[in-house]
Simulated assay, not measured.
Amino acid sequence: MESLPHEIVLNILSRLPIPSLVQSKLVCRPWRSLIRSLIHDPSFILQSNHPIQSQLYLGDFSSQNDGNYNMVTMKLPMPPLSRFTLASSCNGLLCLLDYHRSFEPCIYNPFTANFLELPHLTRHHNFQVLGFGFHPITKEYKLVEISYTIYTCGGSFGRLDPSPFKSDVHILTLGSSTWRHLGTVPYHVHSQQKSQARINGKLLHWVSWMKNRRSTIIISFDMETEKFHEIPLPDCCSSSNKPTEGFDQVVVIRGCLSAVRYGNDSEELEIWVMKEYGVKESWSKEFSIGAYVPKILLERDESEFLIYSRSYLHRKQTRVMCMLRSGELLLEYRNKALVVYDPHCKTFKDVQLTFEGIPTFFIVDVHVANLNWIDTLVDMAEN
């Protein structure tokens, strides 16, 4: 194949079905680049938790002739863990949490089956949020952990005491033998939030609560300086007295930091885009998405229908994954369904997932395949 002209190889690959294209991505880097130019949209890592536990898949989009979407998945080699959960993904490397080691993080490349256990970190808190990133200049991969304990006052469940509102921050550079303690910060990032936006390669972002603030804020962490900063918010959220009016999620849209918020009635989902990074005045509301119930949720028993009603689904149950090259948005509902939304026609299309045994629950993350070995990347960081 190396002796064939580029145009002929491209013509051959363009005739392959999507499952074969997905498998052919692993042949070599030139093929992967060619195939990505054919598929157009990003790949995804999916972790199935039921009925097959902790199984990893690579997913790629396929647009059908009738305009509908199909995501074809390929089962990936498993790490040497019996049970785990997908925490984050960066440059083809997965950050997994090991259930049997008190949710200790580890790094895994599913395309090389290369696995790296990380140094143990003694924790004194109940909740942890992980950020995984790569600095394009220093060539270092770093793992950031924000951990905290929720205190209650008066012994009543669910009533939070804001007085000890602080989190411990630890950081690990891949290749190092120890975690470093960066001190405490007055932020709480919800431990169940999978939303982490990476901008310019080195800046991680989360939605967070802060002491004496009723609304949420957006914080950033610089992988080079290892410092936190607050992102200026648009007027609709920066001075809000109602928690429901703050942002609930961050995402990258067209390379820009973007944030998701819900209307007071939870019937409309808004996406705001920061067109010029760090400039408050550049925030603009770009999308308004109405409530929608995917077909797979409508097929539940009638006794469960109230849970999946239109008004309930938008109460922090819908996650904006990314924008496709078509300009449509990929949405994820309750870890059970993927939907493509067309902002021009304001229409929804359920994505048909093709699995070996369709899971009833899954975790999904945008993913870019990488054939580098972890040891090589660690050596680069050490040098």
Rank of each mutant, 00 (worst) to 15 (best):
T354A: 05
S326D: 06
F157G: 09
L329C: 10
N370V: 08
P42A: 13
C256A: 13
L182Y: 10
W179D: 05
T85S: 14
H124N: 12
T122Q: 14
M274P: 04
F61H: 04
F247H: 02
V9P: 03
F361D: 15
S147W: 07
T376R: 05
I253D: 10
L371F: 15
F115E: 02
L130Q: 01
F115H: 07
I358M: 02
V279F: 08
E2P: 00
Q196Y: 07
P186D: 09
Y148G: 03
L174G: 03
S195N: 07
F115V: 00
R300P: 05
V189H: 00
S284V: 11
T173C: 12
G133K: 00
D375H: 03
R334V: 11
H229R: 14
S266H: 09
I363E: 15
L306V: 09
P80L: 09
L338C: 10
P42H: 10
L86E: 04
R123L: 10
R315Q: 11
H40M: 03
V9F: 02
S215N: 08
T318C: 14
N126H: 12
L130A: 01
Q55G: 12
S282R: 04
L353R: 00
V260T: 04
C256H: 15
L13I: 15
G158E: 07
L26P: 00
C153P: 01
C345S: 07
P243M: 09
F247T: 00
Q47L: 10
Y262M: 15
T85K: 14
D60R: 15
P136L: 04
A291G: 11
D375N: 07
W209H: 12
P110E: 05
T347C: 08
V144F: 07
H190V: 06
N68M: 08
L76D: 02
D248L: 10
N70C: 11
L297M: 14
L26V: 10
S82W: 06
G278E: 13
L306W: 14
V251E: 12
L13H: 03
T73M: 07
S176W: 08
H190Q: 11
